[in-house]
């Protein structure tokens, strides 16, 4: 089995990001997972056990003072060094802002082919074949890389399962201090709200609200239903533009693409741009006053009615069941 490099994302507080299990599961589908961890000196060793439990057979700890100050280039340098050390069959990053940046610069540096936003991966002979969900799931596309190394960004949470726990072999490397090519991080504004709710990306249930909620205060109804279902909170662009919620919650073509087991659309008309971000959900429920709203065309269960009467009744029904 060939080595598969997986660039692990580390949170502002030094922990493994939620994307890690799925990324290592993706690596394990293809070969032997090698977790590449880029930290300030001494900060990576504490993560080794956890990575082993998630199936990383090898951990490559690249450490340098510039990590946290230089934007993206330390991760690129680390992966480039790991490529030489492990001769991998593929290099995986998370399809996040940072993961894509790293993959992009690395591909340009080592003349690799870059495959973006894979939702599944497999080997065919010596080629990695990636599956993509394109135009909001309207098409399924398979792609591969010809004539050079393969780098893949993997959609967060798309690949399920977990590799068997192992005791990893650890390699430690120091990052050189080279770089006139890097932007500089001046400040980290850690504005991720501490919330018991699951994050939108990779959530198994999502409740989204649209302009039909009417105001920022009334948008709270979306949050109440999300909490009753244990779901993440999303929104249409109209609701974001109206200031009901922050842009981080936007589902759709210019926001987050989700593919949950259950998607509940409240007061969302279902413009094509919104549908592009959610129509691969397994089950779609829509509640809207307008019987002609296009969201009903793709809903498995549609209710023509007022969200402010239907949703409280639904929450009550859910809560009375959970008490039984």
């Amino acid at each position: 089995m060939s080595n598969i490099l997986a660039l692990i994302e580390i949170s502002n507080h030094g922990d493994l990001e939620d994307s890690t299990p799925s990324l290592l599961a993706a690596a394990a589908k293809l070969g032997t997972p090698v977790a590449v961890v880029v930290t300030a000196p001494g900060a990576g060793a504490a993560l080794v056990d956890h990575l082993g439990r998630l199936g990383a057979a090898q951990v490559y700890l690249a450490q340098g003072e510039q990590v946290g100050t230089f934007l993206v280039t330390p991760q690129v340098d680390a992966l480039a060094a790991a490529v030489l050390a492990f001769d991998p069959g593929a290099i995986l990053t998370v399809n996040s802002v940072e993961g894509r940046d790293v993959a992009a610069r690395l591909a340009a540096r080592i003349d690799a082919g870059l495959v973006i936003d894979a939702v599944d991966l497999r080997f065919e002979g010596t080629n990695v074949v990636a599956t993509h969900s394109v135009f909001g799931g309207a098409y399924t596309v398979e792609s591969t890389v010809e004539g050079g190394p393969t780098i893949v960004t993997v959609r967060q949470g798309a690949i399920e399962g977990q590799a068997d726990a192992v005791a990893p072999v650890v390699t430690t490397a120091s990052l050189g201090s080279e770089t006139g090519r890097s932007a500089i991080i001046d400040e980290v504004i850690d504005n991720v709200v501490v919330s018991a709710r699951p994050g939108l990306r990779g959530a198994t249930k999502v409740v989204s609200g649209g302009r039909g909620l009417g105001s920022q205060e009334k948008f709270e109804l979306v949050e109440r239903l999300a909490d009753a279902l244990g779901a993440a909170v999303g929104a249409s662009r109209a609701a974001v533009d109206a200031g009901f919620v922050s842009q981080a919650s936007q589902v759709g073509q210019t926001g987050v693409t989700v593919s949950p087991q259950l998607y509940v659309a409240l007061g969302i008309s279902g413009a094509i741009q919104h549908r592009a971000g959610m129509q691969t959900a397994k089950t779609i429920v829509a509640i809207n006053k307008d019987a002609d709203a296009p969201i009903f065309d793709i809903a498995d269960f549609g209710i023509v009615g007022d969200v402010f009467t239907v949703v409280p009744q639904l929450i009550e029904a859910i809560e009375s069941r959970s008490k039984k």
């Binding site: 809903a299 498995d300 549609g302 209710i303 009550e316 029904a317």
Partner: peptide
């Protein structure tokens, strides 16, 4: 994607959805 069941709320839709 085909559309599935579509009902008009007559006071009981929340329970039906549950």
């Amino acid at each position: 994607r085909a559309s599935g069941k579509k009902i008009v709320d007559e006071g009981n839709a929340g329970v039906e959805l549950a």
